[in-house]
Structures are given as structure tokens and as C-alpha cells.
Amino acid sequence: MRFKASIQNIHTFTKLTTSLNSLGPLAWVKLSDQQVCFTIIPEQGTQVWAVLQIDTIFDTYTVQSAAGNVINLEVPLTSLTRALKSALNATSAQIRLTKKDNVPLLALTIVTTTSSNHAAFPTGTRNDEDGMENFDNTFGSGNRETIVTQEIPVRVLAPDTVAGLHEPQTREPDVHIMLPPLMQLKSVSDRFTKLALVGAKNGSTATRTRLEMAANMHGCLKMSIKTDAMSISSVWTDLTNPDLDPSHVSGGDIGLAEHPSTRMKQLGSADGRSEEGWATVRIDGRDWGKVMSVGRLGGRVIACFCHEHALILYVFLPSDTAGEESVLTYYVSSYSA
């Protein structure tokens, strides 16, 4: 079993692990020849299935194993994130799978060069008789190269262990819509969640922070919260409902014509005032706050609403190269009314 890669996009990698870490402490990482998968399945709350193209984060990537060159690892995300953060200013960073005292580790080797001005600081207590030597010390060691090794304990998962893990299956969505900038969405949802909690503190019954999310096929997204004391909602309009690609819909053109979203297009209006045409799900405000953490990656987000059933977010990471994209799929946990 061998895994070795140099990290080419440390910022993306760090943001990725930080976002995932807000949903769960452990990730199942599947390394294969074609792609790198990160999966978070928390005991409750939103699941993430992320499929990354290798070049999104890695460079000179080797993975070898007896099980078809696939390595499955369980990785503690807090440690991984912490380790990656120490590489943010690195000149190079390498990651490899290794073993120490029979404990499997992901070893991160980071080379940093600091052109420091500390040495130029007058060190008042230094009493060198030789002034020239002092001078050399001051200016000779301008560039400090430091090698940092971070060892993250991991667990190697046998193919049998992960064979039973499947991505959730959902029916075709009723509405798919491009979300507004997540920072905007997050601040509204955070506010709503707080309001729900304020209501709860003042003695009303609801300690739950259920948000209602709804969208239609006319570019509208609605987020609302109802408690005993209040009912508030925010509506976004003029969002984009991306066109479905017939080649990706089962049944091709016929399938597309019968697709739930085609039917939903007949209903509702673009100003968001119509009662009709909304696909609605109820989600937990706190959990949603954790999902929104993915905004730091700055990708396009398409939300797929299955009315009263499920909400799925597809986060497409920005990439320089054409071809396959890296996608994070969030299966947002939702509630019935």
C-alpha cells in the first residue's frame, strides 16, 4: 500500500477539510487512480460526498494497493486541517501514507522559507566582541528554511468495511436552482435561527430551529421560519434555474419532457408571490449553518429540491482546467412537517 502526493493547492485543500470538519470529525477518504473522494457521514445531520479531481489538490500523485490501487482511510479532520494550516505559507508540501510503531499515519512534510527580519532586530543582550561576526549573523541568515513534519494518525479501512457505504438515492428533483451567494444566504439563515432561539428562550415551546426552504422554477428561493410568535420569510428572485442536459436525464428528451421540473415550470411566477409551484423542504437551522461553511470554497452551488422529501446541494469547485469538475454533494437532512 503506497500513497504519496505533493499538494499543489494547499488553500483549497485546507478550505475543503475545514468545511467538511464542521459537519463531522471523521472523513472516509478514498484514494484511487482517477479521483479522491471525501465522505462525511455524521450520526445525524447532513452527509457530504465529495468527488475531487486529483489535480484539484494534488500533483505528482501515486497510489498503489493490492485492492485495485484503491486506498480507503478514515481520517480525523481536525488534525488534518490543523496540519494543513501549518502549510499555508509553505514553499512545498508533500503528503504520504506511512507507518510508525504499527500505527498508520498520514505524514505531511512541509518546507517553508521565511525571509525573516527577526535577525535584523538588535539583540540588546548580545555581547560579541567581534563586530564583524555579528554583522554576518545579522545578514547572512536572511532566509530560514524550516521543515515541518505533521503526523496525522489514520485508520486504514478494508474494502469490506466500505463496501456497505452507499451514496443516498433520491428521486428526480422537482426544482433545481442556483443559490445566491452563500454569505448572503448564511447571514439570513443565521439570523433566522437566532430569532427562533430567542423565541425559545422567552418560554415558548419550540427549541427546534426549523427553517423552511422553498424554490420554484422561475428563479425564486424562499427561506422562512415560523414559530408561535412570528413568521418571517426572505425571498430571492431572478436566480437561475439551469437547463437540464438531456444526455444526463434518464430517458433523454422524453425523460426531460416528463421530468418533474418541467411540470413545475408550468406553475408559479417569477416574482415569488404565487402560492403555487414551490418545492419545499424543512431543514434544521444549526445544521444548515454547518453546511454553509462550504461557502469558503467559493464554488457554484446548485440546490435540488424534492418537494417534502429532500434537499441536495451540488457544490462545483472552481477549476482552471476544462474537463471533469470536482463536486461536493451535500445531502441536507430534512424533516417532515
Binding site: 471523521l26 478514515e74 481520517v75 480525523p76 488534525s79 490543523r82 496540519a83 501549518s86 500505527v103 535577525a119 539583540t123 548580545r126 549573523n137 541568515s141 530560514r144 528554511e145 524550516t146 521543515i147 515541518v148 513534519t149 505533521q150 503526523e151 496525522i152 494518525p153 489514520v154 485508520r155
Partner: peptide, 21 residues
Amino acid sequence: GKEILKHPLVTAVAVNTSDFE
């Protein structure tokens, strides 16, 4: 077992001795 994943990071910082005063 599972506890191993809670083990804190082991960090080694290697510094050139020439970088010391």
C-alpha cells in the same frame, strides 16, 4: 482501535542550526 484517531498531531519542526544565533 478507534481511539487512535483522537491522538493529537505529532509535529516536528526541523530548523537549520545555522538559523540559531
